[in-house]
């Protein structure tokens, strides 16, 4: 998979924002991941050549930061916080429920229909709304099995690939609004 023309333009425009070019590496990887869903080796070397930095350097950065996926994830990927405040309010049960509902046995496994996966993450800084998760660029608060079911239902009936339209600054998606509306 190669980057679109639009993404390439965006990446090329990045360096001028920073005193040094290396600062553009992470934002560039971000653009690539938004478009492709995960960072393929080709995408990383494309980023490297667009920014004229060493491909090994780009890979070293990509592997350091946990928000970068080096393998495919589901089109709908849930980042569920399982750190202490969320754990004390039922995060483990939420993860178990998600596994059952999307039919996977562990985190980062992709559901049979290819559309869902989940990941257990560290504190997301919304502990007053525990248990919570990040999904489709929005926070979802005070999770219950019913709320999870509703989100999965909505995702199943949505048109495929809708969750990943556009790049980082794209307008608010439907899911994002729902996340804060509860």
């Amino acid at each position: 998979m190669a980057l679109s023309k639009h993404a390439i333009e965006e990446i090329k425009a990045l360096p001028q924002r920073f005193p040094e070019i290396r600062s553009a590496v992470v934002p560039a990887l971000d653009i690539a991941q938004e478009e492709l869903g995960y960072l393929t080796p080709e995408a990383m070397s494309e980023v490297a050549s667009l920014l004229q930095v060493d491909p090994g350097y780009v890979e070293g950065v990509a592997t350091f930061y946990t928000l970068f996926h080096l393998e495919p994830v589901g089109e709908h990927h849930f980042y569920v916080c399982t750190n202490l405040s969320c754990m004390l309010r039922g995060a483990e049960e939420i993860c178990e429920h998600i596994r059952r509902r999307i039919g996977v046995s562990r985190e980062r496994e992709i559901s049979a229909d290819g559309r869902f996966s989940y990941e257990e993450v560290e504190c997301l800084g919304a502990c007053e709304f525990a248990p919570m998760m990040r999904y489709a660029h929005a926070y979802h608060y005070e999770l219950t099995p019913e709320k999870i079911d509703a989100l999965i239902e909505a995702a199943r009936s949505a048109r495929p690939a809708s969750a990943r339209a556009g790049v980082i600054d794209r307008p608010e998606s439907q899911e994002a609004e729902q996340g804060h509306g509860r």
């Binding site: 560290e122 504190c123 800084g125």
Partner: peptide, 12 residues
């Protein structure tokens, strides 16, 4: 960066 577990004040 606010990533210390249990901390959400800067977001607030």
């Amino acid at each position: 960066d606010e990533a210390e577990p249990g901390t959400c004040k800067d977001r607030y």
